[in-house]
Design a protein around this nucleic acid. Sequence first.
DNA 1: AACTCGTGGTA
DNA 2: TTACCAAGAGT
Length: 363
Amino acid sequence: MKIIVRKDLTLNELYKTQVRNALVSWFLEEKRDLPWRKTKDPYKIWVSEVMLQQTKVDTVIPYYERFIAKYPSLESLAHAKEEELLKEWEGLGYYSRARNLQAGVREVVDSYGSIVPNTRKDISALKGVGPYTAGAVLSIAYGVPEHAVDGNVMRVLSRLLLIKEDIAKPKTKKIFEEAVMELIDEDNPSAFNQGLMELGALICTPTKPKCLLCPVREYCTAFFEGMQDQLPIKTINKKTKVHKMKAVVIRDEHGRVLLEKRPSKGLLANMWQFPMVELPTATHTIEEVIEHDYGIDIVRGEELIAFKHVFSHLVWEMESFEGKLLLEKELPAACKWFAIDEISNQPMPVPILKIWNAWKEKN
DNA sequence: AACTCGTGGTA
DNA sequence: TTACCAAGAGT
């Protein structure tokens, strides 16, 4: 067997044909039965691709089912209230995905007659649709031969074609996009693109790839060289910074609970939380900082739970307490009192849900 | 280009 | 426990 890989990634025609046929045949035979594979509705494919960004298939499945049941069409999502939308997204993370998805959907409803555009130029202009999602929707929903390069595809192709560039570098992705356009099956770009990702998920895994089960093993340069465990090349990232946070579940004389809506940009944007302060030093008490930040006097009650919550780039070392309102002066506009049975209707991030669940168990 | 933006699972 | 990962996009 002789594998020919030129530096410009132009590949031998016979090699390309054999690889794409082996990959597509394997995918059609072995593909998992996933909910978004039962439809070609561009909207539903779009929803699934956004949910799957940086998120495991097993995590996405129940969210996708609930989301499509609640928002079965572009119009239904376009008309949804943001708080209800975020509630559906609660626990899935990367919440700007949800708001960007709705913004993109509204663009399609308003400017494209509710037809998801079928060119890379137009679909890429939609909010939240980047190079990957554009190619995924185009190829899977419309059968357009466009690249959809994600982490799986870079790992698979780095091994198949022995590409040693650092996949952590943004500009490296272009190499893989060109490689996909060289290899892609123009008769079935949907199965080809999904096949690359499915292969990465099931066979060509980050560690311990199952090469003996691989449908393209005989075409794989890394396997031929015994280098599959050395690829892809990926530089490591830095460590996260720790924030010591203290949250308080404050009740007023009516038994209502105080929530605060986070700013519309940044971490956990537009999500609700309990009043929370960061205490890097011990120079002030929680009551003092709460009074300063929220314009209310409280008395601190019993401790609820303490835990560490790890985000992608920072850590909250969280402590939480009960609190009782003594005096309300100038409540910030982002704050609002809620009856107990209304709390669960507000979209809250996982660490806040943890505190709320601890409070409910105690009370 | 480098940094921001969640969460749960795994070695 | 630490580290890394998983169908990326916005800034």
